[in-house]
Amino acid sequence: MNFKLKVWRQQNENTAGQFRDYEAINIPAEASFLEMLDIVNEGLIARQEEPIAFDSDCREGICGMCSLVVNGIAHGPGKAKTTCQLYMRRFQDGETIWIEPFRAAAFPIVKDLIVDRSAFDRIIQAGGYITARTGSAPDANSIPIGKTVADLAMEAAACIGCGACAAACPNSSAMLFVAAKISHLGLLPQGQPERTSRVRNMVRTMDALGFGSCTNHYECEAVCPAEISATFISRLNRDYAVASIREGLAARG
């Protein structure tokens, strides 16, 4: 298969970027999208041109490192997959494909298609955990957790932290990412003691880092490779409201 590529090239955070044209020639239909870019890059190196920089690691959809906007869609066409799981058989021979980095104010571009998503790490550092000192845990079966609750927590915990939700959102909101962690931990009995402080600190950090608000576009849910449901955002809103009221009451004494 052959493709015409329009690829975002940008030397670093401080320079302007632009789309550049490339040809992808003789691409096997069985190749993944990133393997197609590998082939293009080998061609560029042979012609003494700098290869296109893009992030990837596990290439099986779980590490969350790959981060491309393909034809205007975060992680490209198709449901529930990361860019590395996108296969060329999905495209038409001869098609023009637009490739851009994830775009969000809180994800500055590092180079070409690589962005800095450390803002997500900072949100987790603000409270996305259950404090459990190593060695002090009770027997694992001492707290039974109903299968329904455990399964729902697992659904939320499946988030891979790729950032597609924020990249797809017109407001660059990180609500789905935060909601997933809040729900995962907030659903479990172990997560109750820190539930209030967790949601307060995570949401405020999210706001401070420049992520926008949620205005119910549901673009996040549509691109999420882990199929995190936007209903978790309602849970987040509820938890945050409760936390804020408690804080208000505490302030009044």
């Binding site: 845990a137 039974p144 479990l188 997560g191």
Partner: peptide, 19 residues
């Protein structure tokens, strides 16, 4: 296993709530 459960790792469970 104890440590991971305390951290909130959502291991698979039986209907009765045990691992």
């Amino acid at each position: 296993i104890d440590q991971c459960v305390a951290q909130g790792v959502p291991f698979a469970r039986e209907y009765g709530g045990l691992l």
